Simulated scan of single mutants.
Amino acid sequence: MVEFDIPAILCEYTGIGPDTSSTYRYLLHIAYKNKTSDVPQASDVAEAVLEELRNNPPAYSLTETDFDTLKVEIRVVRAEWFPSKASSGEQETFWAKTDYATMMHNSYILSERTTPSEGDTSLLAIVLMPARVAQRPTPTAVHAAEESVEAPYQAYRETIAEAGRKRQPPSRGAHASELSKTQKKSRVDAVYNHRPLDLAAPPITIYHPVFAKFLAMVAEPLDGIEFTRKELDLSWKFIANSTSYHNTEYSRVAAIRNVFGSAVHRHIATPTSLTYSSGTVEPDGVVTALEAAVGAFTPISCITEVKNEMGTGECDPLAQAECGRRHSARLAAALRS
């Protein structure tokens, strides 16, 4: 069993990620114990912090907090800066006076897959909370009205999926001759990618806080992230295998399958047949969300299409990826029918 005693600090920010507007508040010291024989990773400790907060929100002044918007990062701090032996009151005072620049200067992010050393007193858990979406909205008449109009929007989504059933598969739907027909504002199944310019959509962040959370993660400076030896090794192998020339698309997929699968997901480059009412296609990879399965329907979280070289084939790889997204909506509709 591996044990850690780590202070957890709340970082509240108003932008897309922690910045000079961030404020810090001491929450608790969490005693983490690894209950299995597996060596714990930083991500395990981070999840334990979130679980503790979810189980007792009032104790940490987090009542009504939407925990889906929170992210926990494990950081390593300089021993001479970190008040590991201070009392709770001293901790509260210390962190209330801490600013973003001081935090960045005195600590760095520990990769999620890194295994912390047992008894390490230089670890710190930062609970990131975007201020604008921190609280769940209180039910009101407005929200009740919103729920009453959900049914028409559900029907509209079904209309889009139904239109998608009639489309060509991605490999053909991405041809310019097809896109000139489907990329019209009058088409309910058009992709809002600014081609043409009037096919513009609202910012995706207005639909769910998870998108803002993703942008915050992407905005994190890379120089503050520590990569493991395994991550660097996988990255190098992927780059080396990808930059080599391959005679066919199949040989390219075979060359990157193992390393790509180890780095991202084991099925990210595993050809999988997708069958729907009007036919079958076989992308170069399909990742499904098994934990979100409903009966026989399993949502698809990723469809991979590989091009051997830029310029090969008869369509733009990006256009084919966009068609793949529309195809997944068509597949979902077929599975529901």
Rank of each mutant, 00 (worst) to 15 (best):
P40A: 02
P40E: 01
P40M: 04
P40F: 04
P40H: 06
P40N: 05
P40Y: 04
P40V: 00
P40I: 01
P40L: 05
P40W: 01
Q41R: 14
Q41H: 12
Q41D: 02
A42Q: 07
A42Y: 04
S43L: 08
S43D: 11
S43Y: 07
S43W: 07
S43G: 00
D44N: 15
D44T: 09
V45S: 04
V45H: 03
V45N: 01
V45R: 04
V45E: 03
V45P: 06
V45Q: 03
A46C: 15
A46M: 07
A46K: 05
A46H: 09
E47Y: 05
E47R: 12
E47I: 03
E47P: 06
E47W: 05
E47N: 12
A48T: 08
A48R: 08
A48M: 05
A48D: 13
V49N: 05
V49S: 05
V49E: 02
V49L: 05
V49C: 12
V49I: 15
L50S: 08
L50H: 07
L50K: 14
L50A: 06
L50I: 13
E51K: 14
E51G: 08
E51S: 13
E51H: 11
E51R: 14
E51I: 09
E52L: 06
E52T: 15
E52K: 15
E52W: 02
E52D: 08
L53P: 05
L53N: 03
R54D: 00
R54H: 03
R54S: 05
N55D: 13
N55R: 15
N55M: 11
N55Y: 02
N55W: 00
N55I: 00
N55V: 00
N56A: 14
N56W: 08
N56L: 07
N56D: 15
N56P: 02
P57C: 11
P57G: 11
P57E: 11
P57H: 11
P57Q: 11
P58N: 06
P58F: 02
P58L: 05
P58E: 07
A59W: 06
A59T: 10
A59Q: 13
A59E: 14
A59V: 03
Y60F: 15
Y60T: 01
Y60H: 14
Y60N: 07
Y60G: 03
S61D: 14
S61Y: 04
S61C: 08
S61Q: 10
S61L: 08
L62F: 01
L62N: 02
L62E: 05
L62H: 02
L62V: 03
T63V: 14
T63N: 11
T63Y: 08
T63R: 12
T63H: 10
T63C: 07
E64S: 12
E64C: 04
E64T: 11
T65Y: 08
T65F: 07
T65G: 01
T65H: 10
T65C: 13
D66F: 10
D66N: 15
D66M: 09
D66T: 06
D66S: 13
F67R: 07
F67W: 10
F67K: 09
F67M: 10
F67P: 01
F67N: 04
F67Y: 13
F67Q: 09
D68C: 10
D68E: 15
D68K: 14
D68W: 10
T69Y: 02
T69H: 00
T69E: 04
T69D: 03
T69L: 06
T69S: 13
L70R: 00
L70G: 01
L70I: 02
L70P: 06
K71Y: 09
K71I: 06
K71N: 13
K71C: 07
V72T: 00
V72S: 04
V72L: 01
